[in-house]
Amino acid sequence: MRVLTTTRRRMKDTTRRTLHDGAFGVPLVLMVPAAAGLAFLVLPLAGLLVRAPWHAVATRMAGPPVLEALRLSLVTSSAATVAAVLGGVPLAWMLARVAFRGKGVVRALVTVPLILPPVVGGVALLALLGRHGLIGTWLGSSLHLTAPFTPAAVVLAETFMAAPFLVISVEGALRGADSRFEESATVLGASRWTVFRRVTLPLVAPGIAAGVALCWARALGEFGATVTFAGSFPGRPPTMPLAVYLALESDPEAAVALSLVLLLVSVTVLAVLRRHWVNAA
């Protein structure tokens, strides 16, 4: 009998808890702003989809300007991602695994591009690598290399703005990974490099994948620093975001079509990341 009573009481508790925490228990003070916030985030994308020139999308996208811009964007953002991986993964490893003086400062410096207005990033790159920049002058005079207004400049600008996403993501993964696996490998006789290559990297591979996706998406969409540092020249193909901006002036339908392509890419990246996060959880 006593068992029955407790069971019933427990059931009643559960019911009450569900009601309290469920949709009906949410105070209006929170629910209304939450709904407004959601609408604000979703409606512009809905607008984009509604205004899309669906009848002409296929022909627009197949047109040479779009394909040129898409090709340049894909090539430069991929190159920027490769550069970010080559420098960013070792940097993340240093931040996560090596104790050194001024680590806090280094970490802060790495994150600066995340909060820096992109146009400032572009100006900073010009100050260093521009025709009259710190290194740019020397590059021009002795090697006859000029960075600005070339595809290389696009890659530099995108790397500068996007690499921090990769570093932060990989560092997080490294900190989350159990370093005792690395100790096990060391005791088994592995050198530091072997440990990194055969144990650390495979362990944080999901984190690196997430970082790559974030970094690539950021590089693909980079506008401010790219336009400032790499500029836009008539006659040269622009990157996708630049093409969107330019098309708005002359051909708004084209701008919407180009935006759709970028949206599609973003959603794909999000889907990839989501699968990663779900798997990790």
């Binding site: 100790e183 096990s184 060391t186 005791v187 088994l188 006789g189 050198s191």
Partner: peptide, 8 residues
């Protein structure tokens, strides 16, 4: 550590 004749 990696050059010690030790197993763990």
């Amino acid at each position: 550590a990696e050059r010690r004749p030790v197993g763990m």
